[in-house]
């Protein structure tokens, strides 16, 4: 697997969430994603980016463009050094929220992607990685 590009952007405010959506859209278009695939990864990115800002206290997004033979992909890594998630299984459940959202962010984002990984340590932060392939 080749990495064609690797960019990072800050994720601190709700304006950054909008910028993340635009950057992920641009990357997905450049990687030849269909309109539906673009919409899915941008929506997933919006969900996770909001979590990074609201629950993680802000952090960073890494956007990588991948190539594996004929297939092209976009991998997004959201990292924060916030309080972490104590019970990941619970956080992944539809409808579970500690804030005032719908509790669909993580579980919904997972459904919208081909790859999903979450690592979290209480007290030292959370990293969520998602990828979608053409």
């Amino acid at each position: 697997m080749q990495i064609e590009s690797d960019d990072r952007m800050p994720l601190r405010t709700s304006d950054d969430v909008v910028r993340v959506r635009q950057a992920v859209r641009a990357r997905a278009v450049a990687s030849g994603f269909s309109l539906v695939d673009q919409t899915k990864i941008v929506t997933a990115a919006s969900e996770i980016a909001r979590n990074t800002v609201d629950y993680g206290g802000g952090g960073e997004l890494r956007i990588e463009a991948l190539r594996n033979g004929q297939r092209r992909g976009v991998r997004l890594t959201f990292s924060d050094s916030g309080p972490g998630i104590r019970d990941i299984d619970q956080a992944m459940r539809d409808g579970y929220t500690t804030g005032n959202g719908l509790g669909l962010g993580l579980s919904g984002a997972k459904r919208l992607c081909n790859e999903f990984d979450i690592k979290s340590t209480a007290g030292s932060g959370t990293t969520v990685t998602i990828a979608r392939w053409t």
Binding site: V36, E47, S107, G108
Partner: peptide, 14 residues
């Protein structure tokens, strides 16, 4: 609503 948005919304679970 755009068709791609509708497809994504349903998959998101909303």
């Amino acid at each position: 609503m755009r068709p791609a948005v509708a497809i994504t919304l349903v998959e998101l679970g909303l």
